[in-house]
Write a protein that binds this DNA or RNA. Structure first.
Length: 105
DNA sequence: ACCATGACTCCAT
DNA sequence: CATGGAGCCATGG
């Protein structure tokens, strides 16, 4: 579906060293309420290696509970490699790494 | 077209 | 603060 394509495109468009929430991706995809579909699309991940799913986190900036790359640990490592820092609680530093600076526009 | 599912999110308890 | 239930959207059977 074009929607999925859009999602992949948006996710692939996430700048390195930054992360985006499902809601953010959904919004950029054209449907601010399709965050569910975003997760669904990424879950299927028809284009492994092309879609940096590790840059997509939930609203809390926390990693997906069922990450498929090898565990949340792997995602954390990937993000750290991108330059993304994590908080003591294990959440991504959305305030400085979430697309848009984590500000609600 | 309807029902069921899902890496989500929000509200209530 | 943690858990549970309901809402919303697109896809698949």
């Amino acid at each position: 579906m074009n929607f999925y394509e859009k999602i992949y495109e948006v996710v692939s468009s996430i700048p390195k060293g930054k992360v985006a929430t499902y809601g953010q991706v959904a919004f950029m995809a054209g449907n601010p309420r399709a965050f569910r579909v975003v997760g669904y699309a990424l879950h299927k991940n028809p284009k492994p290696g092309i879609i940096p799913c590790h840059r997509v986190v939930n609203r809390d900036g926390r990693l997906a509970p069922a990450f498929a790359f090898g565990g949340e640990n792997a995602q954390r490592k990937l993000l750290l490699a991108e330059g993304v820092k994590f908080l003591s609680n294990g959440n991504v530093d959305m305030k400085n790494f979430c697309v848009g600076g984590g500000k609600v526009e």
